[in-house]
Computed example of a mutant assay.
Amino acid sequence: MPEGPEIRRAADEIAQVLEGRVVERVSFAHPPLRHHGKRFKGRRVEHVETRGKALLTHFDHGWTIYSHNQLYGVWHVAKRGSLPDTKRSLRLRLTTASHEALLYSASEISVWRTDELDQHPFLSRLGPDILNENLEWRTITALLEEPRFAGRQLGALYLDQTFLAGLGNYLRSEILFAAGLHPSMTPSELTRGQLGRLARSTLDLSRRSYLTGGITNPPARARKLEAADASFGQRRFAVFEREGLACYECGVRIERIDISTRRLYLCKQCQQAPNAGARQRGL
């Protein structure tokens, strides 16, 4: 599933061809939505926004198209009339005089009045967006200390969109590794220093992934790997999808475990599980 950085990059591309432009046609594939096409015809797109993994296309008459890619959805931008060569099912098509924004394979699309979006069952439960430019690491630290989150294992918490919107599977593995924390630990067990390091890692790696197109490795390491002719996939991550390979920090082999039915990768040397007798704050 695309995570927050990927959805934001897709939104940036869509915004370039839609924002400020009149949409001449909007086509919905799902029968219950088809009648909404007339509602948007001839309207101007004011803003393309992301909230976590959801994408919102706002129009000038107070209506918004909500979409969530789920596991298989993908956006394409193309010149008008030039559809990409794909076997995917086209779910949403927004056409301007010169371009088209095309959403394939997504199963969650709906139409809302913009002023009623706070009633959306998914959006209403979201935590702060990890790519919100005003989000600070101290805010994340405060969230980690809230009673509703403080007692939960990090491996599960870092997939919960009510905690932080936009986090997902690869970011979870990469952030916990960067912070040197085992996924079985809970925020309530962390020292102030560990909380701060986790909060900063959360913010830094999410933003790095957005800016680099998905690379979470430190820039110096990524450049070194690129100079050694490593492929994009080989230089992206420190631990994610590197099961059996040596940890860049200590040389121990990366392992894969499953938490919340999702795969998580870690280095058990750099992210040691706390001892039973040391599972108290500050120890």
Rank of each mutant, 00 (worst) to 15 (best):
F40P: 04
L55W: 00
K87T: 07
E3W: 00
L195D: 00
A106P: 03
I130C: 07
L176Q: 06
Q271H: 12
R242P: 05
L55V: 04
T114L: 00
E108C: 09
D129N: 02
Q119W: 10
L126N: 05
F40R: 06
S67Y: 03
A246W: 09
A228W: 10
G277A: 10
E100K: 11
S188V: 10
I215L: 11
R242D: 08
H58T: 09
V23D: 04
T186P: 04
A220E: 15
T57H: 09
P5Q: 05
V23N: 05
V22G: 04
V111S: 01
F59H: 01
A228F: 09
Q269E: 15
V17L: 04
E49K: 08
C267T: 07
Q70T: 15
L211G: 05
Q234L: 07
H61N: 12
R192E: 15
T202Q: 07
K41S: 10
I7G: 00
L131G: 02
A230W: 13
H36F: 15
L157Q: 02
S209H: 04
A165M: 03
F149T: 01
R208G: 06
G155S: 08
E24K: 14
L94S: 03
D204C: 06
F59Q: 01
F163C: 03
F237K: 00
R172I: 09
I140P: 02
E174W: 02
G168N: 05
R223N: 12
H58K: 13
L56W: 02
G62S: 11
A278W: 11
D160S: 05
G151M: 09
R279M: 00
I14W: 02
Y158R: 05
A278C: 10
K79Y: 06
D204E: 15
L283Y: 12
Q234Y: 02
H30Q: 14
P218C: 07
E100C: 10
S89N: 13
K268F: 13
I130V: 15
A246L: 12
S82A: 14
Q234W: 08
I109H: 04
F59N: 00
Y104G: 02
L92M: 07
I109M: 06
P121G: 12
T191N: 11
E19M: 01
H61L: 10
F149M: 06
I130Y: 05
L92P: 03
Y158G: 02
I175L: 09
E241M: 12
S27L: 14
V22K: 15
L245R: 14
P128I: 02
Y66E: 04
F28K: 05
A199H: 08
L83T: 04
E24S: 13
R25Y: 10
S188M: 11
R39V: 14
A273W: 11
H36K: 11
P2H: 07
G151H: 13
L157P: 01
V239T: 00
R148V: 13
A230M: 11
G214V: 01
P121W: 11
R263P: 07
P218R: 12
L144Q: 01
V252G: 12
P183S: 07
S110Q: 09
R262L: 06
